[in-house]
Structure formats: C-alpha cells, structure tokens
C-alpha cells in the first residue's frame, strides 16, 4: 500500500535517511525504533506525503507521490490514519467534532451510533462534548486514535502514541491498535519504548524496524 524505493531524505544538506526500501503490506504490523532524532517522525511524514523524498520513489496506494496533485494527496490521506506525537486538535471544537472531522472534511455526515461506538471503544464517551485542551494527555492520545480510524483507513501511522501515557494506558492503546491490525489494517508505530514492543509481540506478529546510521534495518528477534 505504501512502498519506498531507495528513498533518501535530509534537512538542509545533511542526510538523515538513505537507501530506504520497504513495502507496507495490508495486515502488517511494524514498530519503528531508534534514538531520538534518528528520523522516525521524518519516516512517518514521508509515508503520508508531508515531506517529499530527496531521492528515490514513494508510492501511495499505487500512485507515485511525485505525480500527485494536492487534491490527490488529500484524498489518499483519507485512507491513512495518523496519530500525531502532539495530537493536533482544533481547540475550539468539541472532542466529538474533532474525532468526526475527517468525515466532515470529506463531505460526509458522521453517523451518530457509529460515533458513540467509536468513543466508547477508546473510553471517551463521557468526554464527547469536552474541548481538547481540557483533556488529559492519555485522553488526547486516545481521541487522536479515534480520529485516525474514523474513516476506517487502510493504514494507521502512530508517532510515539504512548509518549505521555502511564504503562496501563499504554497497554490499553496498544490493544486498540492490535485490534485494528486484526481487522486487516497495516499499522506502523514509532516508539522507543522497548517494553511496549515486547508486550505487542505477545499479541501479534510484529516486525521491528530500526533506524541506525541513517539506514532502516530489520531488527532481529532478540527484542
């Protein structure tokens, strides 16, 4: 669904990532690890076209990124659910509206029953009318996940989704992502939390990608 061929990217001259070749297949589950600043977020941004590769070729759902118009890119993003590191909500809209936003901008009306089911799934039914700034970090992370899956995307990309969560909440979020994966969605989680990766391996056949020396490597089973 998302394919990288010899992709390189860097900021202002210095190369950050190089020779990245990878295909995210339906139903796959990947962890992305590496030290801070290694390029995890950059890799994810390349996946949804916020950044363009300096070299190589990225294909989203069979369409080369370079040949896409801005509207094409917008349409493809509706098939990619993104859980951002800092969540990114629209602060003056209620949580329920924020979660429904991907549907609204696609010109579809959100289904009430589906909506409350989704909020119940992430345990936020009581907070439907709350404004995002009034929520805790964990609640915001779960709301971000709910928004990411609102359009029932083919791929879910999560950048440090458990960054500001306690262990119990992290496991809960992981379970939600594993459930999504069982429904056939490709999942990519960028994290440096090795315990989370171990916990996931017990539930799902996850592969671990590590960014080291500007290269993306498939880590061994030793984790």
């Amino acid at each position: 669904m998302i394919a990288f061929e010899n992709v390189a990217h860097g900021y202002g001259g210095g190369a950050l990532l190089g020779e990245v070749t990878l295909t995210l297949a339906p139903g796959s589950f990947h962890f992305l690890t590496g030290p801070s600043g290694a390029g995890k977020t950059t890799f994810l941004k390349l996946c949804y076209g916020e950044l363009a590769p300096d070299a190589g070729r990225i294909t989203l759902f069979g369409q080369p990124l370079g040949a896409m118009s801005r509207d094409d890119l917008a349409r493809q993003r509706r098939r990619i659910g993104i859980v951002h590191q800092d969540c990114q909500f629209i602060d003056h809209l209620a949580l329920a509206e924020n979660v429904a936003l991907p549907l609204i901008v696609a010109g579809r009306a959100p289904d009430k029953a589906e909506m409350s089911e989704l909020l119940a799934w992430v345990g936020l039914s009581r907070h439907a009318d709350a404004l995002p700034p009034s929520l805790s970090g964990g609640e915001r992370q779960r709301a971000a996940l709910a928004r990411a899956v609102m359009m029932s995307p083919d791929v879910v990309l999560a950048d440090e989704p458990t960054g500001n969560l306690d262990w119990e909440m992290s496991l809960r979020l992981l379970t939600l992502l594993v459930e999504l994966n069982r429904m056939g969605k490709a999942v990519v989680i960028a994290t440096h939390d090795l315990n989370l990766i171990r916990a996931a391996k017990a539930q799902v056949a996850a592969r671990v990608l590590r960014i080291k020396d500007q290269r993306l490597q498939l880590a061994g089973a030793d984790l």
Binding site: Y48, E50, R70, D71, A74, R75, Q76, R77, R78, I82, H84, Q88, F89, I90, L101, P102, V105, A106, G107, R147, M151
Partner: peptide, 16 residues
Amino acid sequence: DRVIRVLRLIGARDAY
C-alpha cells in the same frame, strides 16, 4: 496556521 495544518493532515482539500 495550526487549524489549517490539522485539516490538511486529515485529508481536507485546499478548496474546503
């Protein structure tokens, strides 16, 4: 700017 980035991220077209 923030609102625009969020909207763009979740697949809003420029026209919208």
